[in-house]
């Protein structure tokens, strides 16, 4: 697999050289491969928001580098806009950025900025709408007439329409109900499968991350604490709870069983997995 994003000694300090100086990200080194689904977890204020905003050049690092396809994104500061088309960023509560007269035009905003026109633009918009689950009939409506969940999908489509190589989503399911969360998440997974590009998902909901991510970045107090396979991160329940992060309930239950001497594996992430482990054990002993 080839590496698409590399962070080298990446750091950022707010208000440098003022009395209000604050280190937000400290010396982060990691490599993200093409096609990976990465989860980022960490407390509010752990530096994860600053970190992701450095990936597409919204925040300029005070030290270190972000390499996109091996090239420092700040090599030519005047061309930083081009990086933003390649690393698409969906902010938290993205529905608040809608402004156009129609949903179609709003989805097209980023793609137009990128320079798409005519058929190419139309195709990009319609495809993005489909990926994000925006109904065909909604495209000509005003974005302000949509429901909350529909607005959010339209806003996400607006970033997908730029056809980025890396899609970053900051808490895309915040404030949605369980059903809305479920649908949106499966749409993102589906998009990742179909497009085969890199997706980076920032989330507080561990169950969601556990289900979809291949690898997880754990941030705590401006530092990178772990960057490993999802299973091995959640197997370290102690480490996670020490930095105040919750582990899925099912992972905890299985961990407890293991500690009590039962022969169960580490890092069980979903109910399905737990079921396949437990059923034979229980049947054998219960029958």
């Amino acid at each position: 697999m080839s590496c698409i994003l590399e962070l080298k000694n990446l750091g950022f300090t707010y208000g440098k050289d003022t009395p209000f100086e604050k280190r937000a990200v400290n010396n982060v080194n990691l490599k993200i491969n093409k096609g990976e689904f990465i989860g980022i977890i960490g407390h509010t204020g752990s530096g994860k928001s600053t970190l992701v905003q450095m990936l597409n050049g919204l925040i300029r690092p005070t030290d270190g580098q972000v390499l996109l396809d091996g090239r420092n994104i700040w090599e030519e500061p005047k061309k930083i806009r081009n990086v933003r088309f390649r690393v698409g960023m969906v902010f938290q509560y993205p529905e608040y950025q809608l402004f156009e007269e129609t949903v179609y035009r709003d989805i097209a905003f980023g793609a137009v900025n990128k320079g798409l026109t005519g058929d190419e633009l139309d195709k990009a918009v319609r495809k993005a709408a489909e990926f994000a689950g925006v109904k065909e009939s909604h495209l000509e409506k005003s974005p302000f007439d949509l429901s909350g969940g529909e607005k959010r999908r339209a806003a996400i489509a607006g970033v997908i329409a730029m056809d980025p190589d890396v899609l970053v989503l900051d808490e895309p399911t915040a404030g949605l109900d369980p059903m809305g969360r479920e649908i949106l998440l499966s749409q993102i997974v589906n998009y990742h499968k179909m497009r085969g590009n890199t997706v980076i998902l920032v989330s507080h909901t561990m169950e969601d991350i556990a289900r979809v991510a291949d690898k997880i970045i754990v941030m705590n107090k401006s530092e990178l604490v772990a960057f490993e396979e999802t299973k091995s991160v959640f197997a370290r329940g102690d480490m996670l709870s020490k930095i105040g992060l919750q582990v899925p309930q099912i992972t905890n239950i299985m961990q407890d069983l293991k500690q009590k001497g039962f022969d169960v594996p580490d890092g069980v992430l979903t109910v399905d997995e737990a079921l396949s482990v437990l059923t034979p054990m229980l049947k054998k002993e219960g029958a």
Partner: peptide, 21 residues
């Protein structure tokens, strides 16, 4: 109705479905 249940409850329910007492 696509509502969440605690994972503990779901596990128990599904184990029951597999014939575990």
């Amino acid at each position: 109705h696509r509502l969440d249940v605690p994972q503990a409850a779901e596990l128990a329910h599904r184990l029951r479905g597999c014939g575990v007492k």
